[in-house]
């Protein structure tokens, strides 16, 4: 897409980061993740990541931080001192903790870490998440063939990321994609990813004039929404991250219309 609310520079940076992550993933030893495909647990909504042990190799971790530092500095040289401090601070133990806290979205931990070490608040969680993703993506790559459904409201069956993006494929089937770990799984077209609502009178599609490939599936039961993109019309299909990023205007539209990322999950 030529037009996007996201600046070209930002898109380029995102693509560079993804390129790095892909390299890192390729170089990961497949044995560094040890998962247990417990279908009973997963049926109740437990993401696979919770059933997985990651063997994070410290030297690799340091190398990745350094490569990421180089990339970020090519965009903004002012970050050097902070990023160097991070590299000094990190030891084998911290690396392990970072990966665990990234897995559990523990933003409080990262906030505290930033405050204690006088770092910009975004730096620790950003680094941790960026470095954790190759592991997640390797996990989803290895298990994709076994992933065929998800539990509404429980997010991505592999990494637990909340659902927000899907693509139309084949004859119009709705396939949900996780922009975090790249896992994908089909879902009924008239079904809310957040609360499982199948009442067609409460499901609506919001569309944007002049954007024939974009729909926002919204649910008036839980007020959740999912962006559904007809990428069959695209000349080249972007990665789920890029698709998510380039359609960020749909998030604004949905939220301005009173819908929320995860919906009000009703127990």
């Amino acid at each position: 897409m030529k037009t996007s609310v996201v600046s070209n520079e930002y898109q380029k940076l995102q693509e560079e980061i993804m390129k790095l992550q892909e390299q890192w993933k390729q170089n990961l030893n497949p044995d560094s993740i040890d998962f247990r495909l417990d279908s009973e647990a997963m049926k109740t909504g437990v993401p696979l990541v919770a059933l997985t042990n990651f063997d994070v190799k410290f030297p690799l971790f340091v190398q990745w931080v350094d490569e990421l530092k180089q990339l970020l500095m090519s965009q903004n040289a002012d970050l050097e001192s902070q990023l160097n401090r991070v590299i000094e601070l990190i030891d084998e133990e911290t690396a392990k903790v970072w990966m665990e806290e990234a897995f559990s979205f523990n933003h409080l931990y990262f906030k505290k870490f930033a405050e204690e070490n006088v770092l910009d608040e975004w730096i620790p969680p950003f680094l941790a998440e960026t470095l954790f993703r190759p592991y997640l993506q390797l996990l989803s790559e290895k298990t994709q063939s076994k992933i065929s459904q998800a539990v509404a409201g429980c997010g991505c069956p592999v990494c637990g990321e909340p659902v927000r993006l899907g693509q139309l494929e084949g004859k119009g089937q709705k396939i949900l994609y996780c922009p975090r770990c790249h896992a994908n799984w089909p879902e009924k077209k008239l079904s809310c990813s957040h609360c499982g609502n199948e009442d067609y009178e409460k499901m609506k599609y919001l569309t944007v004039e002049g954007k024939p490939t974009e729909q926002i599936h919204v649910c008036d039961e839980c007020k959740g929404y999912t962006k559904i993109i007809d990428t069959r019309q695209f000349i080249t299909k972007p990665s789920p991250e890029m698709l998510d990023l380039k359609t960020i205007h749909l998030d604004y539209i949905a939220q301005e219309n009173g819908y929320m990322v995860m919906g009000e999950i009703k127990k």
């Binding site: 897409m1 024939p212 019309q233 080249t236």
Partner: peptide, 23 residues
């Protein structure tokens, strides 16, 4: 106008037997 937005021509997209491809 579709190509500029990264989309394939309308005729190609709609062709159900796949007699048209674009790339």
């Amino acid at each position: 106008d579709r190509l500029e937005e990264g989309m394939q021509p309308a005729c190609v997209v709609t062709c159900h037997p796949g007699a048209m491809q674009f790339g």
